[in-house]
């Protein structure tokens, strides 16, 4: 990946999207890298569309504004594909990671993605329900992002998920999220 990787997350309030961006920032600290994680703050309502951002770089990050030209676009809720333009500002080599039950080829056609852009899908909501019984797709999305970008190793990510979720949740929920992260990593489909 380039020296600086810029990520834009699209989710809905209550899906753990902001938490995912925070966990990713923490996990990417390794190797002396610089990181940022910040949501776009609006009225905080469950179900409302929201954006969150990450920057990861070998250099000091001085830019303090939203990511305008993302290297990676992560869509935590596929219903957003019908309501907002998630390809806005995308680059020639942007990677799209979409939580959907649909086939990546179908999503590629829907997005009108260029051949140089990668489209990756993962059924993160199903994985989350399987692993810990709640439709919280953030941990499998982190697994998918880890696989698609190679920003961090899976082991490293799992360690950070354990650390972040360990502060708030029971062992059962932590184990479920670790399994979901692992499955998100393994079950990505490219098309």
């Amino acid at each position: 990946m380039a020296e600086t990787t810029e990520i834009r997350w699209h989710g809905r309030g209550g899906q753990g999207t902001v938490t995912a961006a925070k966990v990713l920032a923490d996990a990417c600290l390794s190797g002396g890298r610089h990181v940022q994680a910040f949501p776009e703050y609006g009225p905080e309502r469950a179900g409302a569309p929201l954006r969150a951002y990450n920057r990861v770089s070998s250099h000091e990050l001085r830019m303090h504004c939203p990511v305008l030209n993302p290297d990676v676009v992560t869509v935590v809720d596929a219903t957003l594909l019908d309501s907002i333009n998630i390809t806005e500002g995308a680059k020639d080599a942007t990677i799209f990671i979409i939580n959907t039950t649909k086939d990546p080829k179908e999503i590629r056609a829907k997005l009108g993605a260029a051949a140089s852009q990668k489209v990756i899908t993962v059924d993160a909501t199903k994985i989350a329900i399987d692993c810990f019984g709640r439709a919280m797709p953030n941990s499998p999305m982190l697994g998918a992002l880890c696989k698609a970008t190679g920003l961090i190793t899976l082991d490293h990510l799992l360690e950070d998920v354990r650390k972040s979720f360990g502060k708030k949740f029971s062992q059962k929920v932590i184990d479920g999220n670790l399994e979901a992260t692992r499955r998100g990593y393994e079950e990505v489909k490219e098309g």
Partner: peptide, 12 residues
């Protein structure tokens, strides 16, 4: 320090 831009953003 700047509200939200710094107060609520995570940075190294």
């Amino acid at each position: 320090l700047d509200g939200f831009i710094i107060s609520h953003s995570i940075e190294r």
